[in-house]
């Protein structure tokens, strides 16, 4: 079922158009990554979806109803979560829970549950002002989840964290996506590939690609064989470029990337060729292109 549908969403600040004619939809139960370079309009898009900014144009419908106040169904983690530093974690979560419409006792129970889940239960009585960045990020996720929202929106949930914190948040997201629809923005492709089901790529405020991760892999991922050698192989690279089985050859310095249509066959042919011509290779790698290449293609065009 479609949870959220966005039609030609546009936001301009004076002459600057931050988001331009963006349309996409989010299916219930999916984990969706909003990808884009810095300044592509990710935060503006998320803030419009969270009703923190009014779109200049376009419509957002939640559960097929347009123009409703659906804030009680969403949880939102801003890029830089802020809190009342003079409160402790439990007070803050209870406040947010009550503001989301929970009763006090329900909010307290839920707050304790979440602090346990996010692993900051030990610090629940400490003032938030003394929390580390990672703990604040967890508390931010906890406040977003307090009222069991249908849609969880996370703005750059892992960008500001160290490798350990980032690993933990990604694991947490994998856990959460079992029960909640998640939309998160990131500029790190690797993270997106790891947890998401669908990808929305935006570039300069415009939609570049929207597809499921598997679809993207099928369409854009190619098999590639990378050969490194001790000497320059440009001449040889030129000679294999017109093989049927090769779609593209990129040769830089002593390294050749060969994009092939059939790995098994190409590998055999290339290995035979290498032994015949006694090429001084140092490395022979068979692999696949990552989405990084697609991203670079989108961003760099």
């Amino acid at each position: 079922m479609e949870l959220l549908e966005v039609k030609s969403l546009t936001k301009s600040f004076g002459k600057h158009v931050a988001v331009n004619d963006l349309s996409f939809s989010i299916e219930e139960g999916r984990c969706v990554a909003l990808l884009g370079a810095n300044g592509a309009g990710k935060t503006t898009t998320l803030e419009m979806l969270a009703s923190l900014q009014k779109p200049t144009n376009g419509s957002i419908s939640f559960l097929s109803v347009e123009k409703r106040d659906y804030r009680e169904y969403i949880g939102y983690l801003p890029q830089y979560p802020v809190f009342f530093p003079w409160m402790n974690a439990i007070e803050y979560l209870v406040l947010m829970g009550e503001l989301s419409g929970l009763s006090k006792s329900k909010a307290v129970a839920r707050a304790n549950e979440l602090l346990e889940l996010l692993g900051i239960a030990d610090a629940k009585k400490r003032k938030i002002g003394g929390y580390s960045g990672g703990m604040k990020q967890r508390l931010g996720i906890a406040q977003a989840l307090i009222h069991e929202p249908k849609l969880l929106m996370l703005d750059e949930p892992v960008s500001a964290l160290d490798p350990v914190g980032r690993r933990e948040i990604l694991e947490l997201m994998k856990l959460l996506k079992e029960t909640t629809t998640i939309l998160f923005s990131t500029h790190i492709l690797h993270d997106a590939e790891e947890v998401c089901d669908d990808v929305i790529m935006i570039h300069k405020g415009e939609l570049a690609v929207t597809a499921s991760l598997s679809e993207l892999r099928r369409k854009h991922q190619e098999d590639v064989i990378i050969i490194s050698a001790d000497e320059n192989l440009d001449a040889w690279a030129g000679s294999i470029e017109n093989w049927n089985i090769v779609s593209k050859v990129i040769s830089t310095n002593n390294k050749i990337e060969i994009y092939v249509k059939n790995v098994a066959e190409a590998r055999n042919l290339l290995l035979v060729e290498i032994t015949e011509k006694k090429l001084p290779i140092t490395k022979f790698t068979v692999g696949q292109t990552s989405l990084e290449d697609l991203f670079m293609e989108v961003v760099g065009r």
Partner: peptide, 12 residues
Amino acid sequence: SGMLKAILVKPV
């Protein structure tokens, strides 16, 4: 500080 957004993202 951004607290206003944190509150208004809730149904308030």
